[in-house]
């Protein structure tokens, strides 16, 4: 495979969640999402009840991918920040460590300046965590398959059951 699969364990997830909760407080945001570049939701903070998080993750990744395409056409490596202004809510999307996408939704209780400032800080910590996840995955790959892999024994029957 071209890239490593993203494997997230409890410990890393907790650290990511902590970072998001902190950012959520400090940036006065309404909702935060962390999405991988392929459109899968990794984590969120704030009130996500009224939001279709799966669709939002996929569309955000599409948005970032399209913007990345435009960047390359213009000879830029990447545009790292996208900002959409709405009547009530605004959304800032930033690319973190070339790997994951941080989405911040905020309203008039916060400001773009504050969001940018806090996101910048949080990006550094999140980049570190994702670097560690990547190196852990690489190490595990090098050492061969995981001992307690839950997938080693997937059978035809398991898969047939999914389609019943």
């Amino acid at each position: 495979m071209a890239e490593f699969d993203l494997v997230m364990y409890e410990e890393e997830f907790r650290r990511i969640d902590e970072e998001l909760q902190k950012l959520y407080q400090q940036a006065n945001a309404k909702v935060l999402f962390l999405v991988d570049k392929n459109g899968q939701l990794i984590a969120s903070a704030g009130d996500t009840h009224n939001i279709d998080t799966t669709a939002l993750a996929s569309l955000t990744a599409g948005n970032i991918a399209a913007t990345g395409g435009i960047a390359r056409l213009l000879g830029e490596r990447e545009f790292t920040i996208l900002f959409h202004e709405g009547e009530k809510d605004n959304i800032q999307i930033s690319l973190i460590g070339q790997r994951v996408i941080l989405v911040v939704i905020f309203d008039q209780r916060s400001s773009l300046g504050l969001v940018r400032l806090r996101v910048k800080k949080a990006s550094e910590s999140l980049t570190r965590i994702f670097d560690e996840i990547a190196s852990k995955a690489e190490k595990e790959k090098a050492e061969g398959r995981l001992d307690e892999s839950p997938f080693a024994e997937i059978s035809d029957e398991d898969i047939d059951n999914l389609f019943r």
């Binding site: 699969d5 494997v7 997230m8 409890e10 991988d36 392929n38 899968q40």
Partner: peptide
């Protein structure tokens, strides 16, 4: 690139 999340016990695959 599938995404395996041990924390929420989910596997995500893209087709």
């Amino acid at each position: 690139m599938s995404f395996i999340n041990y924390s929420s016990r989910e596997i995500n695959c893209k087709i």
